[in-house]
Simulated assay, not measured.
Amino acid sequence: MRIVIALGGNALLRRGDPMTTEVQRRNIKIAAEAIAPLAAGHSIVVVHGNGPQVGLLSLQAEAYAGAEPYPLDVLDAGTQGMIGYLIQEELRSLLPPEHQVATLLTMITVDPADPAFAHPTKFVGPVYEKDAADKLAAGKDWTFRQDGSAWRRVVPSPEPRQILEIQPITWLLERGAVVICAGGGGIPTVNPSSAPGALRGVEAVIDKDLASELLAEDVHADLLVMATDVDGVYLEWGTPRQRRLDRVTPGELAGYQFAAGSMGPKVEAAARFVAKTGGRAAIGSLADIAGIIAGTAGTNVVTHRAHTGAVPGSLAPQ
């Protein structure tokens, strides 16, 4: 099978973790140990988040008098290289020497008229107390929203339209490489109407799960996996009535509501992929990756909910 695996932020930095290279390397090693065994029998694409890292790099300019934070598109590019290198290093240490692993800087176009630019919603960077957030908002013209009991910066999150590097990504996959790409949702890019064919980056962050869905479509993936820190999608989460969805169709998911800042984009991406391609999407814990691939763990989104047998695109017999 061809599998796109989108690693949630917990695969890199858990909430409250110090943002050090060693902490990220330790967490990425866990992810790599789950992914590496799959590469022997499957074509693998890895996508990762970058929210905390973008926030960290944007604040490091404070250490230099007169310096300004780099724009988000440049920070996206920097974190793609930084995180991609760490994932690539860990995977190479686990795979046979001849098995190639490649990280590819990935630009993704967005519509400059996307309404998301007028309504920033995507959390990036560390958490702040209210007073500190207010000070940064006034000094840098940033927008903040409450995230739990703390405050975080929010930026526009436009829809991904076109993956500009899809040809080299496909070329690498066809030659057996594990490809790490579209990190952090890709580098958001627009075509200015005043200069057809030209490209420029924009101050935005594309949702990683929606970018992963578009990528899965474009590489003709059989399975889209969104690995997170819970074992599936739950209804009535946090209540005594909570229950996990095991197998569900896009139509059934449309009847439920999920938090926009956490599970919502994953559910939307899974439903979109299955509805458009007829493939399978799954949401679950990285620790259950083998079961997710087999169709026996996580929440599996399928075109038709079977009562018996394995889900489409699994390793189990039909």
Rank of each mutant, 00 (worst) to 15 (best):
M19K: 06
H42K: 03
V23T: 15
I35E: 01
T20Y: 14
A34V: 04
Q24D: 01
A39F: 10
R25W: 13
G41D: 15
H42L: 01
V45M: 00
A31R: 08
P52I: 00
V46Y: 06
V23H: 11
H48G: 09
D17V: 10
A36G: 14
A31I: 04
H42P: 09
A40D: 12
I30V: 15
Q53V: 00
N50P: 12
V46R: 04
I44N: 07
A31L: 02
L38F: 14
S43K: 13
Q53E: 02
L38G: 13
L38W: 12
E33T: 07
N27W: 13
H42W: 08
A36N: 15
A36T: 13
E22R: 15
V46S: 05
E22L: 10
D17T: 13
N50R: 02
D17M: 05
G55W: 09
R15A: 11
G16L: 00
I44A: 02
G55L: 05
S43F: 04
A40S: 15
P37W: 13
A34Y: 08
R15Q: 10
G41F: 11
I28H: 10
R26S: 13
I44M: 05
P37V: 03
H48L: 00
V54Q: 06
I44Y: 12
P52F: 05
I28N: 09
V23E: 12
V54Y: 03
G55F: 06
P18R: 10
T20P: 13
R25L: 04
Q24I: 00
H42R: 03
G51N: 11
E22T: 15
R15Y: 12
R25E: 03
D17P: 14
G51C: 03
E22F: 08
P52C: 01
A31Q: 07
L38E: 01
G51L: 00
T20W: 10
A40E: 14
I35R: 08
A34L: 02
A36L: 11
N27A: 10
